[in-house]
Amino acid sequence: MTDAERRTAIRDIVRQFAAEAREPEPTESLFDSGLIDSFVLPQLVTALEEAFHIRIPDSDLNPRQFESLARIEAYLSTRAE
Protein backbone atom coordinates (compact mmCIF):
# COMPACT_ATOMS: atom_id res chain seq x y z
CA MET A 1 0.00 0.00 0.00
CA THR A 2 1.37 3.42 -0.93
CA ASP A 3 1.35 6.36 1.48
CA ALA A 4 -1.41 8.01 -0.59
CA GLU A 5 -3.55 4.86 -0.49
CA ARG A 6 -3.05 4.58 3.27
CA ARG A 7 -4.01 8.23 3.74
CA THR A 8 -7.19 7.80 1.68
CA ALA A 9 -8.17 4.65 3.54
CA ILE A 10 -7.72 6.36 6.93
CA ARG A 11 -9.82 9.34 5.81
CA ASP A 12 -12.59 7.00 4.61
CA ILE A 13 -12.67 5.16 7.94
CA VAL A 14 -12.66 8.33 10.04
CA ARG A 15 -15.45 9.76 7.85
CA GLN A 16 -17.46 6.61 8.52
CA PHE A 17 -17.38 7.21 12.29
CA ALA A 18 -17.24 11.02 12.47
CA ALA A 19 -20.08 12.90 14.13
CA GLU A 20 -20.11 15.47 11.29
CA ALA A 21 -19.80 15.07 7.52
CA ARG A 22 -16.74 17.24 7.02
CA GLU A 23 -13.09 16.70 6.21
CA PRO A 24 -10.82 17.29 9.24
CA GLU A 25 -7.42 18.90 8.83
CA PRO A 26 -4.54 16.40 9.08
CA THR A 27 -3.38 17.62 12.50
CA GLU A 28 -6.81 18.63 13.86
CA SER A 29 -7.73 16.83 17.09
CA LEU A 30 -10.62 14.51 16.27
CA PHE A 31 -11.46 14.49 19.98
CA ASP A 32 -11.37 18.22 20.72
CA SER A 33 -13.39 18.96 17.58
CA GLY A 34 -16.05 16.46 18.68
CA LEU A 35 -15.76 14.38 15.51
CA ILE A 36 -14.83 11.22 17.43
CA ASP A 37 -16.02 10.64 20.99
CA SER A 38 -14.83 8.15 23.61
CA PHE A 39 -17.42 5.56 22.67
CA VAL A 40 -16.74 5.69 18.95
CA LEU A 41 -12.96 5.51 19.36
CA PRO A 42 -12.91 1.73 20.07
CA GLN A 43 -14.99 1.14 16.94
CA LEU A 44 -12.64 3.31 14.91
CA VAL A 45 -9.65 1.30 16.15
CA THR A 46 -11.36 -1.98 15.27
CA ALA A 47 -12.17 -0.68 11.79
CA LEU A 48 -8.51 0.31 11.28
CA GLU A 49 -7.39 -3.17 12.32
CA GLU A 50 -9.78 -4.76 9.85
CA ALA A 51 -8.92 -2.43 6.99
CA PHE A 52 -5.15 -2.75 7.44
CA HIS A 53 -5.17 -6.41 8.44
CA ILE A 54 -3.31 -5.80 11.66
CA ARG A 55 -3.89 -6.45 15.33
CA ILE A 56 -3.15 -3.41 17.46
CA PRO A 57 -1.81 -4.61 20.82
CA ASP A 58 -3.37 -3.21 23.98
CA SER A 59 -0.01 -1.63 24.83
CA ASP A 60 -0.40 0.60 21.74
CA LEU A 61 -3.93 1.63 22.63
CA ASN A 62 -3.03 5.11 23.76
CA PRO A 63 -5.78 7.49 22.58
CA ARG A 64 -3.13 10.00 21.48
CA GLN A 65 -2.09 7.57 18.72
CA PHE A 66 -5.52 8.08 17.18
CA GLU A 67 -6.09 11.76 17.93
CA SER A 68 -5.67 13.09 14.37
CA LEU A 69 -5.42 11.84 10.81
CA ALA A 70 -1.68 12.56 10.90
CA ARG A 71 -1.14 10.61 14.12
CA ILE A 72 -3.15 7.63 12.84
CA GLU A 73 -1.14 7.67 9.65
CA ALA A 74 2.14 7.89 11.56
CA TYR A 75 1.18 4.98 13.76
CA LEU A 76 -0.02 2.79 10.90
CA SER A 77 3.13 3.53 8.90
CA THR A 78 5.11 1.94 11.75
CA ARG A 79 2.94 -1.16 11.36
CA ALA A 80 3.34 -1.38 7.59
CA GLU A 81 5.16 -4.39 6.19
Binding site: S38, L41, D58, N62, P63
Partner: peptide, 13 residues
Amino acid sequence: MDGRSVLLQASRK
Protein backbone atom coordinates in the same frame (compact mmCIF):
# COMPACT_ATOMS: atom_id res chain seq x y z
CA MET B 1 -9.17 9.76 34.94
CA ASP B 2 -8.33 9.54 31.25
CA GLY B 3 -11.80 8.52 30.18
CA ARG B 4 -10.77 7.78 26.58
CA SER B 5 -7.99 5.47 27.69
CA VAL B 6 -10.21 3.69 30.22
CA LEU B 7 -13.00 3.17 27.69
CA LEU B 8 -10.60 2.10 24.94
CA GLN B 9 -8.98 -0.51 27.17
CA ALA B 10 -12.23 -1.65 28.79
CA SER B 11 -14.11 -1.95 25.52
CA ARG B 12 -11.42 -4.35 24.27
CA LYS B 13 -10.68 -6.25 27.46
